[in-house]
Simulated scan of single mutants.
Amino acid sequence: MSQQIIRSAEFTADRAWGALDIANMNGITVRLHWTDQPYRWHINDGEEVFAVMSGTVDIHYREHGVEQIVRLQAGDIFFAAVGTEHLARPQGAARILVIEKEGSV
């Protein structure tokens, strides 16, 4: 298929952080996630772009050993550089587009 239309507002998964694989572009994956549960603290081995499509998500990250929290609304984007320790905590159900290196945590 050379094109695809995804209605992110209609996507659900059977478990928290369930994903719809949209594309793999030379080792960079684009996935749409649905969740209503937090993810664990982690550090990606590459950059990560995290775009909230619907819902509200609190991003916790550590900068110089100090925990920071930022609230993301639909349309907001968080960029995590290599080595950024972070976790996502949705406030209710959320849909998140994640772009990252294939196989990243």
Results as ranks from 00 to 15, higher is better:
65 G>T: 03
76 D>H: 12
37 Q>N: 11
78 F>W: 14
55 G>A: 10
77 I>T: 14
100 E>G: 11
88 A>E: 00
91 Q>M: 14
22 I>G: 03
35 T>Y: 03
68 Q>T: 08
29 T>V: 14
78 F>N: 11
32 L>D: 02
57 V>T: 05
54 S>C: 08
19 A>R: 13
28 I>W: 03
8 S>V: 08
77 I>V: 15
94 A>P: 02
34 W>N: 05
67 E>D: 11
14 D>I: 12
64 H>E: 13
53 M>T: 07
47 E>V: 04
13 A>H: 10
77 I>Q: 09
90 P>A: 01
16 A>W: 06
20 L>A: 05
86 H>Q: 04
92 G>T: 11
63 E>S: 12
64 H>G: 10
83 G>N: 09
27 G>N: 02
46 G>L: 02
97 L>H: 00
28 I>Y: 02
65 G>Y: 05
85 E>W: 04
92 G>R: 10
102 E>N: 06
83 G>K: 08
78 F>A: 15
60 H>A: 09
36 D>F: 09
4 Q>M: 12
32 L>T: 00
56 T>Q: 14
27 G>T: 01
79 F>P: 03
20 L>H: 05
60 H>E: 11
86 H>F: 03
76 D>E: 05
65 G>F: 01
65 G>Q: 01
25 M>D: 12
102 E>W: 01
19 A>V: 10
71 R>A: 13
67 E>S: 02
22 I>W: 00
88 A>L: 04
69 I>H: 08
97 L>R: 02
34 W>P: 05
58 D>W: 08
44 N>A: 13
55 G>H: 05
4 Q>S: 09
40 R>M: 13
96 I>W: 01
34 W>Y: 15
64 H>I: 04
33 H>W: 05
